[in-house]
Design a protein around this nucleic acid. Structure first.
Lengths: 217, 217
DNA sequence: ACCTGAACACCGTTCAAGT
DNA sequence: ACCTGAACACCGTTCAAGT
C-alpha cells in the first residue's frame, strides 16, 4: 500500500501512523515498554518527539496500535479444520506472538484490547467452537477456558527462569536461605528450570480439549 | 509486632519499609501502578519522597514488596485436605487476590516474583500434588497447568467489560462498524458482558482437575 | 539516624512559530 | 500540512546539608 521509489527510503521515509507503531514495537522488543519513550521513538525515526503527534493522538494510541499489530501477526486458524486442530493452531500462534513480544501481556493487563485484530481473533475462535457443535453457553465457557490457559502459559513463560524478568540472584539467595523449608521446590527445581513451555502448553491444551469434547452433544 | 500507644498514631507513625509498602498497595489499588509515584507515596505518608530512600532501596524494591504482600494475603490451603479441594481453595484464593489488586498481574508480568510469599505458595501447591500421588514430572505439569489457568482467568477478569481496563466506547464503535462481519461476538455478547468469572474459573478448574485425576497411578 | 531542598536527567504533552 | 524549540508539569534518584 506504500509507494517505494527504491532508493534512500531508509533515511527518511514519510512518517505515518503505521511506521511509528512498527518502530515502537521494535523498540519495545529491544528495551521493554519501560524503555519506550516518545523522545527515543522519535530519535529512532529521525524526528523530534513532537512530530509524532501529527500522526497519533497519544502514547496510549501507540500502545493500542502495538497490541493490535501483535494480534494481527497471529494467523487465524482455518474454519474448515477439525475444531481441535483449529483451536490448537490458534492457541499455539497466540502463545508464540505473546512470547515473541514479552511486553504485550504487560500492556494488555493494564488496558485490555477492544481493537479490530484482537476481536477478529476472538470471533474466529467462537465460530470454530460453535461450528463444532457447542451450545452458545458452552462456546462461551470454552472460550474463557482456552483464552485463560493461553494467556496464563504465555505469562508463565515470559517470567520463567532464564528470561530477563526472572531475578536469578534473588532466587539463588532465597534457595540457600529457605531451601530446607521448601523441599518440593528444591526437588522439582531441575524440571522448573528446564521447562519446555511449548510442550507444557500442548499438554494443558489437550487436557482441556478432551474435557470439553465430553460436553459435546 | 508493632507497638501501638493507642493515640495519635495516625498522624505520624515512624516510617518503616512495611508501612511504605502498605501505603503503596493502597495507592495502587486506588490509582493503578501508573499513578504510583515516589512523590505521591511520600505525600500519603506525610513525608518528602526522598525520605523513603532511607527504608527502601528503589521503586523496584517497593514493587517487589507489594507483590509479596499480595501473595502473603492468599491463605495457604491445608495439606491434609483432599488434593482437589486444596487446589480449588488455593486457586480461588489466588484469583481473589489478583483481582482485588488489579495492578498485580501487570507488575508481575514485567518482573515475575522470586520473593518468599510467592515461593511459599508454590511450595504448598507442589506438596499437595505430590502427596496426592503424582510423579514429579506430573506434579510439574499439573502446577504449570493450574497456575496458568489461574493467572489467565484473573487476567481475563481484570480486563473484562465493566472494569476500568475495558474501553467500552471503542468497543461500542467497533460493534456498530464491524458487528455484521462478527456474528459470533454479536450473538454471544450478552454472555460475554455478564460473565460470572468466579463460576467460569471453577468450571475450568474442574475440567482440569478431572483431566489430571485420570493420570494418577 | 533520619529527614530535606536543590539539583540532575529524564518523562508526556502543548503551543506558538517556523517551512 | 508537517515539523520544531521552548516550555510546563511531572518523573526517579543523588547528594550535601540539616536535625
Amino acid at each position: 500500500m506504500t509507494y517505494d521509489v527504491g532508493m534512500a527510503t531508509e533515511t527518511r521515509a514519510p512518517l505515518t501512523r503505521e511506521r511509528i507503531i512498527e518502530a515502537a514495537v521494535a523498540l519495545a522488543d529491544r528495551n521493554g515498554v519501560a524503555g519506550l519513550s516518545m523522545r527515543k521513538l522519535g530519535a529512532e525515526l529521525g524526528v523530534e518527539a513532537m512530530s509524532l503527534y501529527n500522526h497519533i493522538t497519544d502514547k496510549e494510541d501507540i500502545l493500542d496500535g502495538m497490541i493490535d499489530q501483535v494480534f494481527q501477526s497471529i494467523p487465524l486458524p482455518d474454519l474448515e479444520l477439525d475444531w481441535r486442530d483449529a483451536i490448537r493452531q490458534g492457541g499455539i500462534g497466540a502463545v508464540e506472538a505473546f512470547t515473541a513480544h514479552p511486553w504485550v501481556l504487560e500492556v494488555l493487563g493494564s488496558r485490555g484490547s477492544t481493537r479490530p485484530a484482537a476481536l477478529a481473533f476472538m470471533e474466529r475462535a467462537l465460530a470454530i467452537l460453535s461450528r463444532a457443535g457447542f451450545s452458545d453457553a458452552d462456546t462461551h465457557h470454552a472460550w474463557q477456558l482456552i483464552a485463560s490457559l493461553t494467556i496464563g502459559y504465555a505469562f508463565q513463560q515470559i517470567t520463567s527462569p532464564g528470561t530477563a524478568n526472572f531475578d536469578a540472584a534473588t532466587f539463588g539467595a532465597w534457595l540457600v536461605r529457605e531451601g530446607e523449608r521448601h523441599p518440593s521446590i528444591v526437588r522439582l527445581a531441575p524440571l522448573i528450570v528446564e521447562c519446555a513451555f511449548d510442550q507444557e502448553y500442548e499438554f494443558g491444551l489437550d487436557v482441556i480439549i478432551d474435557g470439553l469434547e465430553a460436553r459435546l452433544p
